[in-house]
Nucleic acid binder design. Structure first.
Lengths: 203, 203
DNA sequence: GATTTGCACGAACGTTCGTGCTTTTATAGC
DNA sequence: GCTATAAAAGCACGAACGTTCGTGCAAATC
């Protein structure tokens, strides 16, 4: 399971400590749970029970529920980055990357049991001022900003509107699927993305 | 304040009893509160405090929190019907009514302090099976169904996709505005609706 | 081999939640 | 104006929440 200590070679991801491993496992589960129940509905007791550890032991990793929530938002952002942003970054700037972003988003939804983390939590916190809301807003702003940048590169006349529309279509697909459980909405979303793509100037 | 009892004239909204009035006032406030805090975050104690009545007195009107939640969903549906559906119904079938629906939705958001009730609660309940989820899903299905019907009348080649796109744009505008508080998203949404409208066949 | 540190545990705290009872107050018909 | 009934309040409960505390144990350090 664990590597023998390779003499001399000090890789930077150097054998995470037990605590760090536990923390990562907690946050991994926390992201899934919060996607389904929300960050407020995410309860320390239930999280601990699912991971078969004590409330207090889990609690000690974060010190407060707010810190747990903030760490969960960070973990979700990292997961999103790995599953959506980074793969799309290998596509060329502009139109291809926009296409990759949309498609990656739609396909990465299958990996969650509770739907898109951001769809669930942004609706939950849009009226609850504080650091949690700020963190969620910052993550979404970053994604919208990237979409807008790529739309600009692609030569769209109104990049902000284009970014909004792409966001609305994929997030709407998530929301609609969660409620109807009809996978046809993904076809509709892909159709909408294709229509959006057709708007891009040739180049 | 109260009208003198007009003799002989029995209007159908016949002087609601005290209890019915109180109940209506409770639900009116409950819709606003749930739009901001969610139907789970909606607490009987807080609702009672805001209406300056006792927890138990308010509670007696519904018998359980679940019944309060269901009644709140119904009240929200009624509010939506009055503010969006009915006014749009005065527009002719097809394209004009679709335009009215989108525009009415966007403008009716200003009436809420906590954003669109359905945007908040559908995300909250999409993973909580039960009658509350069913009621929310039914209300949204009804709206989507109406949009689809009008798109069909307007001669759209794929009414389901058209309805989804209209839904995604206006709901996305709500979600995006709640988080960014930038009213420009409504301009983007109206631009997207115009582009969608341009897709309609002439007639 | 002794000591310190990192992690996790169980028990208990105070608070808030929904809910059930009983009593008081307000309303509406004779 | 009295009375039956409906509406609201008062009070207490059990459960679940986040949080604190003291303790046990294992690995690491000296």
């Amino acid at each position: 399971m664990t590597q023998p200590p390779s003499v001399g070679a000090e890789a930077l991801p150097a054998e995470p400590s037990k605590g760090a491993q536990t923390r990562a496992a907690i946050l991994n589960r926390a992201v899934d749970l919060a996607s389904a129940e929300g960050l407020e509905g995410l309860t320390i007791g239930r999280l601990a029970a699912e991971l078969r550890m004590s409330k207090s032991g889990l609690f000690a990793h974060f010190g407060s529920k707010r810190e747990l929530q903030l760490a969960t938002v960070d973990a979700a952002a990292e997961r999103f980055r790995v599953a959506v942003i980074e793969p799309a970054m290998s596509a060329p700037d502009g139109a291809p990357r926009l296409r990759a972003m949309g498609e990656r988003y739609l396909s990465h939804l299958d990996l969650y049991s509770g739907g898109c983390f951001w769809g669930a939590t942004s609706a939950e916190y849009d009226d609850r001022p504080g650091p949690v809301r700020d963190a969620i807003a910052a993550a979404l702003d970053a994604w919208l900003g990237e979409l807008e940048r790529q739309a600009e590169i692609a030569g769209v006349e109104n990049p902000k509107r284009f970014a909004f529309e792409l966001y609305a279509v994929v997030m709407g697909a998530n929301a609609r699927y969660r409620l109807s459980r009809d996978r046809k909405v993904f076809d509709h979303a892909r159709g909408a993305l294709a229509r959006l793509e057709a708007e891009l100037p040739p180049g």
